[in-house]
Nucleic acid binder design. Sequence first.
DNA 1: GTCTATAAATAGATAGAC
DNA 2: GTCTATCTATTTATAGAC
Lengths: 206, 206
Amino acid sequence: MMDTVAPTGLSFKAQMRRAREGAIVGTVCRLMADKGFDAMTVDEVAAAVGIAKPSLYKHFPSKEDLAAAAMAHVLQRAGEYVAEVPLSLPPLKRLHAVLRWAAQVHLAGDLPILPGPRSPLRATLSVHPVYLAALRSVSAPLEGWIREAQADGSLNAALPPQAVLYALYARACDPLISLLQGTGQYSDDEILDLALSACFDGLRAR
Amino acid sequence: MMDTVAPTGLSFKAQMRRAREGAIVGTVCRLMADKGFDAMTVDEVAAAVGIAKPSLYKHFPSKEDLAAAAMAHVLQRAGEYVAEVPLSLPPLKRLHAVLRWAAQVHLAGDLPILPGPRSPLRATLSVHPVYLAALRSVSAPLEGWIREAQADGSLNAALPPQAVLYALYARACDPLISLLQGTGQYSDDEILDLALSACFDGLRAR
DNA sequence: GTCTATAAATAGATAGAC
DNA sequence: GTCTATCTATTTATAGAC
């Protein structure tokens, strides 16, 4: 039996709270994907969620915590997807599948864009425990797969594993996807294929 | 004889004006590379240039025009570089050289990050004549080189030329470069080689 | 053209009623 | 816990002296 009904009455309110926080976080993801952290206003978030601004601040103490929660949420979803990728697949295919998943989230408009190198948000994230934990839950298995794929000869072994990992994070947020989407000339599947091919196959002919 | 001394007295002031505007635009480039358009404030720009804010507004009528001028400036520099690339090189090498140049500018901290897909800045840029002209002065030759490189079999012909062009723009601003730079583990040349290899060769082994 | 001083709007964040 | 109303700081932009 699932534990959707908790032993205490407290948990019902807790569930509603989590549901609302989920709605908030989802909204923040969309707004950060659209305009980025700096251009997003707390008023917009509140209006889009359909609640008042002070209610937001009961859930999250600051705008930056709001953003950190949103990015942690995306990373947690990614971590869940990573955990479900069948290890029977060859490691390169597993990496391919993860990037495809991330690119789909990007296409759907739910992937916050990366903060600038010296953005104040970066400082907040770099000490945010929940965000960092979610980041590691993705990075650790990916880095293992990268080493596997380099060992079996399917991934370019001249690239440091860390560089490959960073490249995958960068490609998940690839502006190429938005640019192609903006033309209106390609279907979502075509965009995914183009972006993945550009990343794994490279621009040079093979 | 060079025309550094102009026939009219007016042109001397004009030169000083251009020099100051050059300093402003250079500062804006650095700030936009660091923090992006939205997090950059006009006060910061004025302070960094060493002039008062109203003086800024004598040169540029709004913050968005400031940003457009900065991005147009980078594109003009890129256009000048493109015009100097020897056509004796094979087309793929020419594209390679241009991306390397852009990545160097990025590494130096002088390449504004791309605005978000629905950023208000995008709307301004899309109707800014100087910016659009500079953009075309880069895009037109690049697109020709892309078709050449596909025709001679060195560039993946399965990718639409437009997609390759967008990919090059995206890679010029590749966050991978900042991420590698942030580790402190790699020299600038190593970062350039890694970023260029990831773009042209792809992550897969060859 | 450059500055000091300031306007006008908007941002993040909170007080206090219910 | 949620809302109305508000505070404070900051931001873009300008008026007006020199």
